[in-house]
């Protein structure tokens, strides 16, 4: 009876995700590997990497007292030790909320619950700066989001979103980023969509931007309905992408063309 149930469950899973060719571990490449020599040099040098301007602002915010309340540093101390590896584990399941939250949301939870302050607006300069500063402490650390039973459900929802055809172009993320990542689109590399450097300084944006901003870009590109910043669907997609990139070193703040 039990064996039959497992077999049935496997059959359902098989039907939901037909023949997706996931990229083998040895063939995974960061966006960095697709970049020109000049763009790589920008990312490699902390005095040429414009993302570092946000990291420095983030450090100021980390030590700044919010009104009469505590600063980040009052609880967390030196970010170089306390925040090391943290960004590599996000998005992470929040037991209080019963769903995964990404790093930006986690910072805002701290702001509202611990600092009694107003949350930063999504994609605001301050939120990007703090996220970049926290992310910078995990540079070089392998991505390792949780893969336990409670997180698994949300990883699967993210995978479902990744493999679902959508938009007027009727394309799924996987059709480009799993099946055709070695190709080019309008002169640009398609890439594997590995979220290794977020928040990134994108030369096209002339600005720092979050993974969700990038995801919304892609969704606009296939002319799909674009979820709002911070939407649960985007967090699940982030979670799946980080799970898919597990083991790859974080490069925050990355530079991308």
């Amino acid at each position: 009876m039990r064996a039959w149930r497992i077999a049935a469950a496997l059959a359902i899973v098989g039907a939901a995700f037909p023949a997706i060719a996931e990229i083998p571990t040895a063939e995974r490449k960061s966006g960095y590997d697709f970049m020109s020599r000049e763009s790589r040099a920008m990312q490699d040098d902390d005095t040429a990497n414009a993302g570092m301007l946000w990291v420095l602002d983030g450090e100021t915010l980390w030590n700044r007292h919010v009104a009469a309340e505590k600063s980040c540093a009052d609880c967390h101390g030196d970010a170089r030790t306390s925040m090391k590896g943290v960004a590599a584990r996000y998005p992470a399941f929040s037991p209080a909320l019963g769903r995964p939250v990404n790093l930006e949301q986690r910072i805002n939870i701290c702001r509202t619950d611990r600092q009694q302050a107003k949350p930063f607006a999504y994609e605001s300069k301050d939120l990007l700066a703090l996220t970049a500063f926290v992310g910078r402490q995990s540079r070089g650390i392998p991505i390792a989001v949780a893969d336990d039973a409670q997180t698994r459900t949300f990883i699967d929802s993210g995978r479902e979103a990744f493999t679902r055809r959508q938009g007027q172009l009727n394309l799924s993320c996987a059709q480009c980023h799993d099946d055709n990542w070695s190709g080019r689109l309008a002169g640009n590399s398609v890439t594997q969509g590995q979220p290794t450097g977020y928040p990134i300084y994108r030369l096209e944006w002339q600005n720092l931007g979050s993974l969700q901003r990038r995801l919304r870009n892609c969704l606009t590109g296939v002319r799909a309905v674009v979820p709002a910043l911070g939407a649960q669907e985007l967090v699940e997609l982030e979670l799946f992408l980080m799970w898919r990139a597990r083991g790859m070193p974080l490069e925050t703040p990355g530079v991308r063309p």
């Binding site: 040098d45 902390d46 005095t47 040429a48 570092m52 301007l53 420095l56 602002d57 100021t60």
Partner: peptide, 9 residues
Amino acid sequence: MAARALINV
């Protein structure tokens, strides 16, 4: 915040 500058000499 004031302008940030990064210089490398």
